[in-house]
Design a protein around this nucleic acid. Structure first.
Lengths: 226, 226
DNA sequence: TCAAAAGTGTTAGAGGTACACCCATGG
DNA sequence: CCATGGGTGTACCTCTAACACTTTTGA
């Protein structure tokens, strides 16, 4: 039959965000050649019997200790010179998590796992720089027409966190009043009877994203658009 | 090292369109097991030394005789039960061509190649029905924010062809006057000094899509949006 | 002269954008 | 009482959506 010697891997670009900060990406330091000791996005070979999503989740857990709620396929990178030793095709995913929900290095499989600001990435193994670039573009595009940004925020968040997240992602200032008006007009945010007390300034009301409501509206043809 | 027995294939959902008709998909009848004799989208195993795009173009040429101008990666299908015999992961692409530019069955590699209206698909091998569905959704979404529809039309086309294409793709009536106004406002269509003479009715002016202009506008941040 | 398709403007309403001041709290 | 961040309304303007008649040709 067919003689094919191509290896299949999965890789994951995991984004995190903390209030008043930049978007960051989760990287691991490689324990093995090639690119031993260099930083890379988590990932590894797919087992013959597991699905691609299972493979991503497993590798992530092994190498960084995190597990992901929002995970989406990004692109498949298959140039024949990606890996210096053999033909490796990688199905890349990207995911969003709340960094504060996890301790890194909770596992023993990775030498080191660390968050890097997307504007201050180190040298990266393979074509991982490009994969991250593609993921950033996808994320920046997608937040404008799907409410995935909430995956990066706490369950209950002050409105300013949401606003800062969008300013960071879109890379441009937005009008606070207009943004709030529009966001609230969707009816997807439940305003809670709680205040955040972050120190100085007037305490903010907390909100929660109502995802059941989003899915039911979506079925009726509603389109989120910011 | 790693022991992995996963085969990698590429598959292509090729769309075509002829004036006043439905969108169609190019299918081939399989010569070999599994699913021998059933209809499937063109595709096959990736050679160890070729890129994924090269593989798609090669398989398309071999099985149907067409070569594609607009080709884009769609999604990678990797469930472990896709193929009844072994683990096969398929990187699916979708492409757009003008059917009138090619004779089908120009090659000897496929038993049969034929266009099928997307609303009248036959039974399909593997999970190809699902792949086509994903491709249709992508196409329908993408025509609204990138001017890829022109890949389905002749170089020189009457405005009504464009309008009919969008009506077909969007699946809803559109206002002729508003549509023309908006399309022309982009400045991406060159009106030619020619008329089409399709038989009855007033002859239409022919237009041509100016792709150089599109790319230069795009660099400056212009966004096509219908 | 009739049938078929092409071509063309205006108006009302919705939605987007721009913009500045007061409020609640902690130090 | 001051510094810090939270919360709010209005007016203009642009873009969208709705809508129908005339023109050119072939039969």
């Amino acid at each position: 039959m067919i003689k094919q010697s191509i290896k299949l891997t999965v890789d994951a670009v995991v984004f995190g965000y903390e209030s008043d900060s930049k978007i960051s990406v989760l990287l691991v330091k490689r324990r093995i050649a090639p690119y031993k000791g260099e930083w890379a996005i988590p990932g590894g070979f797919v087992k013959t019997s597991e699905s691609l999503e299972e493979a991503v989740q497993r590798e992530l857990k092994e190498e960084t200790g995190v597990s992901i709620s929002y995970l989406e396929q990004l692109y498949t990178f298959g140039e024949s010179d990606r890996d210096p030793r053999e033909r490796v095709v990688s199905v890349a995913y990207y995911g969003l998590i709340k960094p504060q929900d996890f301790d890194l290095n909770a596992s023993t499989d990775a030498e080191e796992a660390e968050w890097f600001d997307i504007d201050e990435l180190p040298e990266l193994a393979f074509d991982h720089k490009r994969i991250i670039e593609v993921a950033i573009n996808r994320l920046k595009g997608k937040v404008t027409y799907e409410p995935i940004g909430f995956e990066l925020l706490d369950k209950e968040f002050p409105f300013s966190d949401l606003e800062n997240l969008y300013v960071t992602l879109l890379g441009r200032p937005i009008d606070r009043r207009n943004f709030r008006k529009k966001m609230l007009s969707f009816g997807l945010l439940d305003e809670l009877d709680k205040k955040s007390s972050t120190g100085r300034g007037r305490p903010a009301n907390l909100f929660r994203f109502n995802s059941e409501r989003y899915f039911s509206l979506k079925k009726e043809g509603f389109v989120f658009e910011i």
